[in-house]
Amino acid sequence: MKEKNYHQEISDIRNLMNRSSRFISLSGLAGIMAGVYALIGAAFAYVFLFQNQSSYINASTRSADFRFVLIDLALVAFLSIATAIIISLRKARKNDEKIWDQTTRRLLLNFLIPLATGGIYILIKLGQEHYGLSAALMLIFYGLALVNASKYTLGSIRYLGYAEIIAGIICAIFPGYGLWFWAFGFGILHIIYGSLMYVNEQKSA
């Protein structure tokens, strides 16, 4: 039998397995940006809701506050998703990979199932004026979505998921500090994880 490069063969196998089953165009930069948007969003919420406590809670100010928070949240989510899509598209183009294929669809589906479940649940609770635990639930369901999606993308995202779940559970123990935990989970954790990922990308590039 001729001498062959078995190392090459093994690395070809690994490469194909990853490329055919995992979405690899995620970038740490998208995580950092999502964290920054979340911190800005949390700062807005803090200034608008907690600084002018003069307007003591009644039904009408409450529904106005409620609308403000929902718009704030939607903006943070929209900007984060848009940034992630743009950065992923650019990265995929640079590496000459197709972006909308089976691995992408599988990743999105598995990410969205826990996330949409949690999102709908939280909206129902909010509609019934149960405002408590919203931040904790967001963190927990988002963490579960990340853990679930990690099978279909870079494995390390699982640890970000664990961290979000833990943050959510601790948040549930301390009612009244939801905004702070939310800012930590969606802001600080994203920035930390995104930076670690970004450093790794630069190293391997």
Binding site: L16, M17, S21
Partner: peptide
Amino acid sequence: HRVRLGIMSILMVN
């Protein structure tokens, strides 16, 4: 063979 090895690699994880 590169192609057959590739086919099986893909089918192992999909």
